[in-house]
């Protein structure tokens, strides 16, 4: 037996996803939360490309999905960081807990 089993990629991606999830749940700074979201999106992409390579290398399904995840990640980063900067201008804060205007 040589080569890398598929499960190794899946486990690395699961670890990356769990780390990103912890960052999203525990961080206070909105920019740090966005960074953790990017980690989670990367974990998903590893899974998509690993499944494409191992199970359907002759059809580009996984690659197409990974490309759309890339697109969505870029859009999410641009809009998310623009929102953070806009909120910072209005409220002088990037702490997620203090973004509570909609609550009252």
């Amino acid at each position: 037996m040589s080569g890398i089993p598929l499960t190794w990629y899946l486990i690395v991606a699961a670890a990356l996803f769990a780390i990103g999830l912890y960052g999203v749940l525990a961080r206070r700074n909105a920019v740090a939360i966005l960074m953790a979201v990017e980690l989670m999106l990367n974990a998903v992409n590893i899974n998509l490309i690993a499944f494409w390579r191992y199970l359907t290398p002759d059809r580009p399904i996984g690659l197409a999905w990974a490309l759309f995840v890339f697109t969505v990640a870029a859009a999410e980063a641009a809009v998310g960081l623009a929102l953070v900067i806009s909120i910072y201008r209005q409220r002088d804060s990037v702490i997620a807990e203090e973004m509570d205007i909609l609550k009252y």
């Binding site: 996803f17 769990a18 780390i19 999830l21 999203v24 749940l25 525990a26 961080r27 807990e97």
Partner: peptide, 17 residues
């Protein structure tokens, strides 16, 4: 730099993993 629920977050992400 962590909110008050970071322990719960840690438990949740370890459970998810």
């Amino acid at each position: 730099s962590f909110n008050s629920q970071w322990v719960m977050g840690l438990v949740a992400s370890v459970l998810v993993f």
